[in-house]
Write a protein that binds this DNA or RNA. Structure first.
Length: 808
RNA sequence: GCGGGUGUGGCGGAAUCGGCAGACGCGCUAGAUUUAGGAUCUAGUGUCUUACGACGUGUGGGUUCAAGUCCCACCGCCCGCACCA
């Protein structure tokens, strides 16, 4: 008989809810804590997909196991509910995005509850709740007060289709990450957060956290720290104008044969000669019209024009021409480079295209064919001649510093974080611009600064957000001075709310602080944080930045928020392709819950393969998971719902099943701990296969098994626990333990090899000496047959494992 | 191009330290049972071979008594970055 999943699931979900089984209600310092967190979802209109239960089940298994192991577990859930789809809905319908969001949250909450996750729902939070975003705004004000939030007129990624600017991180290959619309550069006044002030610490502290190496590497690359030197060139015949360049290869200064400025560089105007002005202006205009995509196109030929001006190389007073070219980026370093075509691929390509001189200063390559970028002995370099790269770099930096024409310098690829969005559905930035041109922060006592109701969700079209439509809200008068002012109309990006939500879960109803210090001290850092790899550099870098800032101002007790991070993989469609509506290979979890049940879905997703792998969905595999649960059920429960008579209270310690049982306890605990759910589950299958072959099953083994099953299939397990005669939830029952002595077998099977090939096997004491093993092996018939007529060269005996006889 | 990862049956995947390759599941084959089965139970299932046996973890080399595991070179696939000076 198959177990009645619908009935059981409903029963236990109601029980957990009414009993508040999973409520975490105090910080008990006598107990070890475990904070296990999922990346909270954006509640989209389409409900959850099968990818959500993958990560959420994994954390739920850990949470449930840790509770049984006596830990105090914090396992919360909430909603990252500001965002573009709701804004788009508001534009389409002119209804408040909050209405849409609330409806979606309801669907998500129902779906997650129907999967049986053991969240403490009393801690549910929503980033769009004013009681929540009050503290998001509060953190912004702290950043502002510490000079880490500032306004600047910067070239931004303006997306006409979305009517907003985007962060660099939101622009992929020149189009918007959301929607794939073209993006152009346009100067605008924007709020910017000074994440670059934390670049070194964000980089260095990666060493302290247990994250996948690939994610750490992506963050390192994103921060892009490079060490080198800044060198100062003067402009020929304009002694008061200098051009600073950043280079990681100051040792090649003697090989600089020209210089290149980014077309947007401020000096271009000043130095361009009358003869070249027309061409320069033309080039600058052409570049400004190009999108980032066109500018970075790989296949593109190098382009550029000569400015007519010359620079003086500080090391040898040589006069070199100054060009402008779009391969030099205004956003990196100083926006200017010294070009050393002999030892840089890009400069080499440019020099070849425009027939500029190429001078070798590091020997070892063939500069007639390609740039040589590796190590070598320096030549044509005056005081650097004869040195290798590393020594030459040190020496030239010393020289630059002594002669006051440069210094050691570190550059970063990381840019400051563009923090404003011209949208309605986000946290208002709590700043007032006064008519005298000054600006001030909204007083903390006035937080939250609520999102006003607006009649019109369409942006006014001048680059401002729809908040500019809310006149009553917008215009303020200082009661003390009577000065008039206007509120900031930009809102925060979606990343803001998710930068600190893990702190709010610790103390979600606190009115005095974002969370109580002692509670944070108890719960932080997050012990396990699980989510998709797509957040590698966005959310995870921003959250670390805010956390470090909050640490510096004494608001949080730890340097890093997430001690251990893990990325779940992706579930592909049955055809091994990414699930998408257009391909028609989407699996809807609601359908699976109906046909197979939550426990089957949970079990299947955990059994599919390693948690971090991309694995294809398989309907047959899902059926197999259900069959396993049915088999467990039949083993313990009769047709009429009673405990089967095979469960025996009178079996002694000599019952055959104990050995398999203890192996299972060891392996399941170990595998789950390390997130190897697929192998842990396979061991549970081994146990059930073995139990099915026995006439009787000791009650202790049956109960221990049900406990191990419960994190993965909690509804079935609770029901079996009841049938086994218990009257309340098994949530806090102690996790099974094992006795090492049952795992150590005295007699083991030893493999007998001849020349490395297995020829025979034999039962032998684990303690047998090498001599004894050799003796027994040589006495074996098959071995004897195999070495007949051969001379024994050597015998290798590994106690408890094998004997290998080398003979020829 | 650079960085990271990965390659094992028909499929998903196992294999702590170098020590029996293919656990577990799916699929498949045969049988039992059943009015019936996409249910259940039993047996089998890497390839070649009648058998003995041989071969077998992307390819080619190497180290070792012994290699999926270590070393060298190459090939394929996946992910990230991509003119960052």
């Amino acid at each position: 008989m198959a177990f009645p999943h619908k009935e059981i699931e409903k029963k236990w979900q109601n029980y957990w809810e009414t009993e508040k089984t999973f409520r975490t209600d105090r910080e008990d310092t006598a107990k070890s804590k475990f904070y296990v967190l999922d990346m909270f979802p954006y509640p989209s209109g389409s409900g959850i997909h099968v990818g959500h239960p993958l990560g959420y089940t994994a954390t739920d298994v850990i949470a449930r196991m840790k509770r049984m192991q006596g830990y105090h577990v914090l396992h919360p859930m909430g909603w990252d509910a500001f965002g573009l789809p709701a804004e788009q809905y508001a534009l389409d319908t002119n209804e408040h995005p909050g209405t849409f969001t609330e409806a979606n949250v309801k669907i998500f909450r129902r779906q997650l509850k129907s999967l049986g996750f053991s969240y403490d729902w009393d801690r549910e939070i929503n980033t769009t709740d004013p009681n929540y975003y009050k503290w998001t705004q509060w953190i912004f004000l702290q950043l502002y007060k510490h000079g880490l939030a500032y306004v600047d007129e910067v070239p931004v990624n303006w997306c006409p289709a979305l009517g907003t600017v985007l962060a660099n991180e939101e622009v992929i290959d020149g189009v918007s990450e959301r929607g794939g619309h073209p993006v152009e550069r346009r100067p605008m006044k924007q709020w910017i957060l000074k994440i670059t002030a934390y670049a070194d610490r964000l980089l260095e502290d990666l060493e302290e956290i247990d994250w996948p190496e690939s994610i750490k590497e992506m963050q390192r690359n994103w921060i892009g720290r490079s060490e080198g030197a800044e060198a100062t060139f003067t402009v020929a015949d304009q002694a008061d104008e200098t051009i600073k360049v950043f280079t990681t290869r100051p040792d090649t200064l003697f090989g600089a044969t020209y210089m290149v400025l980014a077309p947007e560089h401020e000096l271009v105007e000043k130095i361009t000669t009358a003869a070249e002005r027309e061409k320069v202006d033309e080039y600058k205009k052409a570049v400004s019209l190009k999108s980032d995509l066109e500018r970075t196109e790989l296949t593109k030929e190098k382009s550029g024009v000569f400015t007519g001006a010359y620079a003086i190389n500080p090391v040898n007073d040589e006069k070199i021409p100054i060009w402008i070219a779009d391969y030099v980026l205004i956003t990196y370093g100083t926006g200017a480079v010294m070009a050393v075509p002999a030892h840089d691929d890009r400069d080499y390509e440019f020099a070849k295209a425009f027939d500029l001189p190429i001078r070798e200063v590091v020997s070892g390559g063939n500069i007639a064919e390609a740039a040589y970028i590796d190590d070598g002995v320096h030549v044509n370099s005056d005081f650097l001649n004869g040195l290798h790269n590393e020594k030459a770099i040190e020496k030239v930096i010393e020289w630059l510093e002594e002669n006051n024409v440069g210094r050691r310098e570190t550059s970063y690829r990381l840019r400051d974080w563009l923090f404003s969005r011209q949208r309605y559905w986000g946290e208002p930035i709590p700043i007032i611009h006064w008519e005298d041109g000054s600006m001030s922060a909204v007083d903390e006592s006035e937080l939250p600064l609520m999102l006003p109701d607006v009649g019109e969700f369409k942006p006014p079209g001048n680059g401002e957000s729809p908040l500019a439509n809310a006149t009553d809200w917008l215009e303020v008068t200082d009661p003390a001075t009577g000065m008039k002012g206007r509120r900031e109309t930009n809102t925060m990006p979606q990343w803001a709310g998710s930068c600190w939500y893990f702190l709010r879960f610790i103390d979600p109803h606190n009115d005095e602080a974002l969370a109580d210090w002692e509670k944070m001290k108890y719960w932080l850092p997050v012990d396990l944080y699980l989510g998709g790899a797509e957040h590698a550099v966005l959310h995870l870098l921003y959250a670390r930045f805010w956390h470090k800032f909050l640490y510096d101002i004494g608001v949080v007790p730890t340097k890093e928020p997430f001690q251990k991070l893990y990325n779940q993989g992706m579930i592909l469609g049955e055809n091994h392709e990414k699930m998408s509506k257009s391909k028609g290979n989407v699996i809807n979890p609601d359908d699976i819950l109906e046909s197979h049940g939550a426990d089957t879905l949970r079990l299947y997703e955990m059994f599919m393969g390693p948690l971090d792998a991309a694995v294809a969905w398989s309907e047959n595999g899902l059926d197999g998971a259900r069959r396993f649960l049915d088999r467990v059920w039949r083993l313990l429960v009769t047709e009429d719902g009673q405990l089967t008579s095979a469960i025996s209270d009178s079996e002694g310690a000599d019952h055959k099943l104990w050995s398999t049982y203890y192996q299972t306890v060891k392996k399941v605990g170990d595998d789950f701990e390390h997130l190897r759910f697929n192998t842990g589950i396979s061991q549970m299958m081994v146990f059930i296969n073995a139990a099915n072959k026995e006439e009787t099953i000791p009650r202790g083994a049956a109960e221990g098994f049900v406990k191990m099953l419960s994190p993965v299939a909690p509804h079935v397990a609770e029901e079996l626990w009841t049938i086994l005669g218990h009257t309340s939830s098994m949530t806090y029952e102690p996790w099974p333990t094992y006795d090492e002595s049952y795992l150590v077998e005295d007699e083991v099977e030893v493999v007998l090899q001849v020349n490395g090939k297995v020829r025979s096997k034999m039962q032998m004491s684990k303690e047998a000496t090498k001599e004894k093993m050799e003796e027994v092996a040589l006495a074996d018939e098959k071995i004897a047959a195999n070495i007949e007529g051969k001379t024994i060269q050597k015998v290798i005996a590994v106690p408890g494992k094998l004997v290998n006889i080398v003979a020829n």
